[in-house]
Design a protein around this nucleic acid. Structure first.
Length: 258
DNA sequence: ATGGTCGGCAACCGA
Protein backbone atom coordinates (compact mmCIF):
# COMPACT_ATOMS: atom_id res chain seq x y z
CA UNK A 1 0.00 0.00 0.00
CA UNK A 2 1.16 3.50 -0.83
CA UNK A 3 1.03 6.00 2.02
CA UNK A 4 1.50 9.74 1.36
CA UNK A 5 2.42 11.77 4.41
CA UNK A 6 2.60 15.57 4.64
CA UNK A 7 3.62 18.29 7.06
CA UNK A 8 2.18 21.78 6.69
CA UNK A 9 2.46 24.86 8.89
CA UNK A 10 -0.95 26.24 8.03
CA UNK A 11 -0.64 29.51 10.02
CA UNK A 12 -4.31 29.66 11.10
CA UNK A 13 -6.62 26.84 10.05
CA UNK A 14 -9.51 29.32 10.26
CA UNK A 15 -8.12 31.52 7.51
CA UNK A 16 -6.90 28.64 5.36
CA UNK A 17 -9.60 25.98 5.75
CA UNK A 18 -10.92 26.55 2.19
CA UNK A 19 -7.37 26.27 0.85
CA UNK A 20 -6.76 23.14 2.95
CA UNK A 21 -9.98 21.46 1.78
CA UNK A 22 -9.18 22.18 -1.87
CA UNK A 23 -5.66 20.83 -1.38
CA UNK A 24 -6.88 17.63 0.34
CA UNK A 25 -9.30 17.06 -2.53
CA UNK A 26 -6.59 17.63 -5.15
CA UNK A 27 -3.65 15.79 -3.55
CA UNK A 28 -5.42 13.18 -1.36
CA UNK A 29 -2.60 12.83 1.16
CA UNK A 30 -3.17 9.93 3.59
CA UNK A 31 -1.73 11.69 6.64
CA UNK A 32 -1.41 15.45 7.11
CA UNK A 33 0.34 16.94 10.13
CA UNK A 34 -0.53 20.57 10.73
CA UNK A 35 1.17 23.19 12.87
CA UNK A 36 0.11 26.67 13.98
CA UNK A 37 -3.59 25.92 13.66
CA UNK A 38 -4.14 28.82 16.10
CA UNK A 39 -7.54 27.62 17.31
CA UNK A 40 -8.84 26.27 20.58
CA UNK A 41 -10.25 22.75 20.30
CA UNK A 42 -13.87 23.98 20.29
CA UNK A 43 -13.13 25.98 17.14
CA UNK A 44 -11.28 23.23 15.27
CA UNK A 45 -13.15 22.52 11.99
CA UNK A 46 -13.54 18.80 12.75
CA UNK A 47 -16.86 18.35 10.94
CA UNK A 48 -15.64 19.79 7.66
CA UNK A 49 -12.47 17.69 7.74
CA UNK A 50 -14.39 14.54 8.65
CA UNK A 51 -16.70 15.21 5.70
CA UNK A 52 -13.58 15.41 3.55
CA UNK A 53 -12.72 11.87 4.66
CA UNK A 54 -10.26 12.44 7.49
CA UNK A 55 -10.01 11.09 11.01
CA UNK A 56 -8.06 13.43 13.26
CA UNK A 57 -6.45 14.35 16.54
CA UNK A 58 -5.81 17.96 17.47
CA UNK A 59 -4.74 20.13 20.36
CA UNK A 60 -4.77 23.90 20.30
CA UNK A 61 -4.78 27.01 22.45
CA UNK A 62 -5.79 30.63 22.11
CA UNK A 63 -3.83 32.73 19.58
CA UNK A 64 -0.64 30.66 19.24
CA UNK A 65 0.64 27.20 18.34
CA UNK A 66 -1.81 24.33 17.82
CA UNK A 67 -1.11 21.00 16.11
CA UNK A 68 -3.25 18.39 14.36
CA UNK A 69 -2.97 15.03 12.64
CA UNK A 70 -5.45 14.37 9.83
CA UNK A 71 -5.59 10.86 8.40
CA UNK A 72 -7.65 8.89 5.91
CA UNK A 73 -6.89 5.88 8.16
CA UNK A 74 -7.76 5.79 11.88
CA UNK A 75 -5.59 7.87 14.19
CA UNK A 76 -4.96 5.61 17.17
CA UNK A 77 -3.78 6.38 20.69
CA UNK A 78 -3.20 10.09 20.23
CA UNK A 79 -1.29 11.72 23.09
CA UNK A 80 -0.56 15.40 23.45
CA UNK A 81 2.67 16.94 24.63
CA UNK A 82 5.49 15.54 26.75
CA UNK A 83 4.94 13.55 29.96
CA UNK A 84 7.06 16.04 31.89
CA UNK A 85 6.38 19.74 32.45
CA UNK A 86 6.04 21.91 30.54
CA UNK A 87 4.00 19.50 28.45
CA UNK A 88 3.54 21.82 25.47
CA UNK A 89 0.39 20.00 24.43
CA UNK A 90 -0.24 22.35 21.52
CA UNK A 91 3.22 21.69 20.05
CA UNK A 92 3.39 17.89 20.04
CA UNK A 93 1.10 15.01 19.04
CA UNK A 94 2.15 11.38 19.23
CA UNK A 95 -0.11 8.77 17.60
CA UNK A 96 -0.21 5.65 15.44
CA UNK A 97 -1.60 5.33 11.90
CA UNK A 98 -1.57 1.95 10.10
CA UNK A 99 0.89 0.65 12.72
CA UNK A 100 3.29 3.51 12.00
CA UNK A 101 4.24 5.87 14.80
CA UNK A 102 3.50 9.49 13.92
CA UNK A 103 5.15 12.29 15.88
CA UNK A 104 4.00 15.74 14.78
CA UNK A 105 5.93 18.58 16.35
CA UNK A 106 5.98 22.36 16.21
CA UNK A 107 9.43 23.00 17.65
CA UNK A 108 9.81 26.36 19.47
CA UNK A 109 11.32 28.98 17.18
CA UNK A 110 13.68 30.42 19.78
CA UNK A 111 13.20 34.15 19.09
CA UNK A 112 16.87 35.17 19.45
CA UNK A 113 20.10 33.47 20.52
CA UNK A 114 20.14 35.33 23.86
CA UNK A 115 16.45 34.70 24.65
CA UNK A 116 15.35 32.09 27.16
CA UNK A 117 13.10 30.62 24.45
CA UNK A 118 16.25 29.65 22.54
CA UNK A 119 17.54 27.68 25.53
CA UNK A 120 14.05 26.22 25.76
CA UNK A 121 14.21 25.21 22.08
CA UNK A 122 17.50 23.35 22.53
CA UNK A 123 16.17 21.60 25.64
CA UNK A 124 12.92 20.81 23.80
CA UNK A 125 14.85 18.80 21.21
CA UNK A 126 16.62 16.91 24.00
CA UNK A 127 13.27 16.15 25.56
CA UNK A 128 11.96 14.94 22.22
CA UNK A 129 14.78 12.38 21.97
CA UNK A 130 13.85 11.11 25.46
CA UNK A 131 10.21 11.04 24.34
CA UNK A 132 11.14 8.80 21.38
CA UNK A 133 13.39 6.59 23.50
CA UNK A 134 10.60 6.03 26.03
CA UNK A 135 7.92 5.08 23.47
CA UNK A 136 9.52 3.68 20.35
CA UNK A 137 12.40 1.64 19.04
CA UNK A 138 14.43 2.75 16.03
CA UNK A 139 13.68 -0.73 14.65
CA UNK A 140 9.98 0.13 14.43
CA UNK A 141 8.32 2.20 11.69
CA UNK A 142 8.10 5.79 12.88
CA UNK A 143 7.81 9.18 11.20
CA UNK A 144 8.87 12.37 12.96
CA UNK A 145 7.68 15.39 11.07
CA UNK A 146 6.64 18.97 11.50
CA UNK A 147 7.86 22.53 11.60
CA UNK A 148 11.23 22.07 13.29
CA UNK A 149 12.27 25.72 12.96
CA UNK A 150 15.67 24.37 11.92
CA UNK A 151 17.46 24.62 8.58
CA UNK A 152 20.04 21.84 9.11
CA UNK A 153 22.50 22.58 6.30
CA UNK A 154 23.80 25.58 4.33
CA UNK A 155 21.80 24.40 1.29
CA UNK A 156 18.66 24.74 3.39
CA UNK A 157 18.82 28.55 3.52
CA UNK A 158 19.07 31.17 0.78
CA UNK A 159 22.12 32.94 2.23
CA UNK A 160 24.06 30.79 4.73
CA UNK A 161 26.70 33.47 5.35
CA UNK A 162 24.21 36.17 6.19
CA UNK A 163 21.91 33.92 8.21
CA UNK A 164 24.61 32.09 10.18
CA UNK A 165 23.87 32.45 13.88
CA UNK A 166 20.12 32.75 13.41
CA UNK A 167 18.12 30.67 15.93
CA UNK A 168 16.96 28.48 13.05
CA UNK A 169 20.37 28.13 11.39
CA UNK A 170 23.51 27.65 13.48
CA UNK A 171 25.83 24.77 14.52
CA UNK A 172 24.27 24.49 17.98
CA UNK A 173 20.72 23.97 16.76
CA UNK A 174 21.91 21.62 14.00
CA UNK A 175 23.75 19.62 16.68
CA UNK A 176 20.61 19.52 18.82
CA UNK A 177 18.70 18.15 15.82
CA UNK A 178 21.46 15.60 15.14
CA UNK A 179 21.15 14.39 18.73
CA UNK A 180 17.58 13.41 17.91
CA UNK A 181 18.45 11.98 14.50
CA UNK A 182 21.22 9.73 15.88
CA UNK A 183 18.53 7.87 17.82
CA UNK A 184 17.74 6.38 14.41
CA UNK A 185 16.09 8.80 11.98
CA UNK A 186 16.76 9.59 8.33
CA UNK A 187 15.83 12.85 6.56
CA UNK A 188 13.44 11.38 3.99
CA UNK A 189 13.23 14.59 1.95
CA UNK A 190 17.01 14.87 1.57
CA UNK A 191 17.26 11.18 0.73
CA UNK A 192 15.26 11.86 -2.43
CA UNK A 193 16.05 15.50 -3.19
CA UNK A 194 19.72 16.52 -2.97
CA UNK A 195 19.17 19.90 -4.69
CA UNK A 196 19.68 23.30 -3.13
CA UNK A 197 16.95 25.93 -3.29
CA UNK A 198 14.28 23.57 -1.95
CA UNK A 199 12.47 25.75 0.56
CA UNK A 200 9.33 25.22 2.64
CA UNK A 201 9.18 28.69 4.22
CA UNK A 202 9.39 32.30 3.08
CA UNK A 203 9.16 35.08 5.66
CA UNK A 204 6.11 37.29 4.97
CA UNK A 205 8.28 40.27 5.90
CA UNK A 206 10.78 39.73 3.11
CA UNK A 207 9.44 41.66 0.11
CA UNK A 208 8.94 39.45 -2.97
CA UNK A 209 10.55 36.59 -1.06
CA UNK A 210 9.50 33.85 -3.45
CA UNK A 211 10.68 35.79 -6.53
CA UNK A 212 13.97 36.63 -4.81
CA UNK A 213 14.32 33.09 -3.48
CA UNK A 214 14.79 34.11 0.16
CA UNK A 215 13.57 30.77 1.51
CA UNK A 216 14.31 28.30 4.26
CA UNK A 217 13.79 24.54 4.57
CA UNK A 218 12.58 24.26 8.14
CA UNK A 219 9.73 21.74 7.70
CA UNK A 220 10.86 18.15 7.75
CA UNK A 221 9.88 14.50 7.36
CA UNK A 222 12.20 12.02 9.04
CA UNK A 223 11.69 8.28 9.41
CA UNK A 224 13.32 5.33 11.11
CA UNK A 225 15.72 3.38 8.87
CA UNK A 226 13.57 0.51 7.66
CA UNK A 227 10.68 2.84 6.91
CA UNK A 228 12.93 5.39 5.20
CA UNK A 229 14.07 2.53 2.95
CA UNK A 230 10.44 2.14 1.90
CA UNK A 231 10.05 5.78 0.95
CA UNK A 232 9.71 6.22 -2.78
CA UNK A 233 9.44 9.99 -3.26
CA UNK A 234 9.52 13.32 -1.40
CA UNK A 235 8.67 16.83 -2.55
CA UNK A 236 7.65 20.33 -1.55
CA UNK A 237 4.27 21.43 -2.86
CA UNK A 238 5.33 24.82 -4.18
CA UNK A 239 1.98 25.16 -5.96
CA UNK A 240 0.37 26.29 -2.70
CA UNK A 241 2.42 29.49 -2.85
CA UNK A 242 0.52 30.56 -5.95
CA UNK A 243 -2.91 30.13 -4.32
CA UNK A 244 -4.93 32.93 -2.80
CA UNK A 245 -3.87 33.79 0.76
CA UNK A 246 -1.00 31.30 1.01
CA UNK A 247 0.64 30.44 4.33
CA UNK A 248 4.26 31.51 4.80
CA UNK A 249 4.97 27.75 4.71
CA UNK A 250 4.07 25.16 2.07
CA UNK A 251 3.55 21.42 2.58
CA UNK A 252 6.41 18.93 2.49
CA UNK A 253 5.33 15.44 1.42
CA UNK A 254 6.72 11.92 1.21
CA UNK A 255 5.33 8.62 -0.02
CA UNK A 256 6.04 5.25 1.58
CA UNK A 257 5.38 1.77 0.19
CA UNK A 258 4.20 -0.08 3.27
C1' DA B 1 21.84 46.01 11.56
C1' DT B 2 17.07 46.98 10.58
C1' DG B 3 12.67 46.39 8.78
C1' DG B 4 9.47 44.24 6.36
C1' DT B 5 3.94 41.27 6.57
C1' DC B 6 0.79 38.47 8.40
C1' DG B 7 -2.78 36.29 12.10
C1' DG B 8 -4.91 36.76 16.35
C1' DC B 9 -7.27 39.82 18.64
C1' DA B 10 -8.32 44.08 20.15
C1' DA B 11 -2.68 46.40 22.22
C1' DC B 12 0.72 44.57 20.82
C1' DC B 13 2.85 39.48 20.60
C1' DG B 14 4.91 35.94 17.84
C1' DA B 15 7.06 34.38 13.53
Amino acid sequence: MKLTVATYNINSIRVRLPLLLRWLEAVHPDVVCLQETKVQDNDFPALELRKAGYDMAFCGQKSYNGVAILSRHLVRGARFGFDSEPKDRSRLITATVCGIGIVNSYVPQGRSPDHEMYTYKLAWLGRLRKHLEARFSPDEPLIWLGDFNIAPEPIDVYDPKRLSGHVCFNPQVTEALNEVKTWGLVDVFRKHVPDEGQYSFYDYRAKDGVERGTGWRVDHILATGTLAEKSSRAWIDVDLRTQEKPSDHVPVLATFEV
